[in-house]
Computed example of a mutant assay.
Amino acid sequence: MSLGDDQEGSGGYGGTGQTRTHLPGGTTDVYGGARRTGRSSSRSLVTVVGVVVLLIAAIAFANRGGDDSSSSAKGAGGRPNASATAPTGTKPVQSTPGIIPTGYAHDAQGAQSAAANYAVALGSTAMFAKTTRDALLQTVITPTRVAALEAALDQAYTPEFNETLGLNSEGSAPAGYTFVSRTTPIGTKVTQSSPADTTVDVWCGGLLGLAGTNSTNPVTSSWFTITMKLEWTGDTWKIVTHSQKDGPSPVPGDDKASSADEMAKAVEEYGGFTYAR
């Protein structure tokens, strides 16, 4: 299921993409797993080398003679320089806490800001209850596509589907558990742009699962890229079609998994962000 007709992968949200879960066989706290070992010496060497590289980079930055505004936007091999994902300085979109930001600039930068914020919204827990889902779709989807998408997602977000995630039939977490569904944009890229419509890729990290003691669907992370085609309508950008694919995914680190209580507390205490390109 997708916002368009070409959903790929199962990363962080949308239709049945939420079903990527791990179901441990036991009933112990799966968050308390031991740290992986066997690479300590090599990782120590990498850490030392990394510190040296950072020191060299810091010295070079401190001693450079000013900003060369004529330098190319592309680095070696045609790859974007760091400035390609740096803030541009344009005033961010105005927003109200708890409400999806709207009213983006009518340019490629505004489209990227819209795509990033829409990715966050569509990857949230609001998608799992019909009332909040329909309100969300009214905000981010182009008007001509809303009715069809509402009907399609009603077929995807069924009580049975919610129960596979450990939720109640209406999409809420049972007593003693915290449902986690978050999408965090890492960066955006425009692949096609015109005054009428713009296509944006959003690289994201996602969290999905049920935090709680003895949860059989613990919070896990994923990486995926969302492609949104946006059109300019009603003085803002709105989604026309959407697709998703896995990755790019980094090599997993040796971080020790947090306990269920720590994960639930973090989700409750740390709020999200409004994104502006």
Rank of each mutant, 00 (worst) to 15 (best):
S2K: 04
S2Q: 05
Q7K: 08
E8Q: 11
G9M: 04
S10H: 09
G11Y: 04
G11E: 07
G14K: 06
G14R: 05
G17L: 09
H22G: 06
T27R: 10
Y31R: 15
G32Y: 01
A34L: 14
A34C: 03
R35E: 14
S40F: 04
S42D: 14
S42R: 14
S44I: 02
T47W: 03
V49A: 12
V53D: 10
L54P: 00
L54E: 13
I56T: 06
A60N: 05
A62K: 04
N63V: 10
G66N: 05
D67R: 10
D68S: 02
S69N: 10
S70Q: 06
S72D: 10
G77N: 11
P80D: 13
A82Y: 08
S83V: 00
A84W: 07
Q94M: 01
Q94Y: 00
Q94I: 01
P97C: 09
H106G: 02
N117G: 02
V120G: 06
L122M: 15
T125A: 15
K130P: 05
K130C: 04
R133V: 12
D134C: 04
L136S: 09
T144N: 08
V146R: 08
L149R: 06
E150W: 02
Y157H: 07
T158M: 03
P159F: 05
E160M: 04
E160S: 10
N162W: 06
S169D: 02
R182V: 04
T183C: 13
T188E: 05
T188K: 10
K189W: 06
K189M: 02
V190K: 07
Q192R: 13
D197M: 08
T198W: 01
T199V: 11
V200D: 01
C204S: 14
L208R: 15
L210T: 08
T213Q: 12
T213Y: 08
V219D: 03
S221R: 12
S221N: 04
T225L: 09
T227P: 00
W237G: 01
S243C: 00
G247Y: 04
P250F: 13
P252D: 15
G253T: 15
G253S: 14
D254Q: 13
D255C: 03
M263A: 11
M263Y: 01
E269C: 03
G271F: 02
G271K: 11
A276R: 01
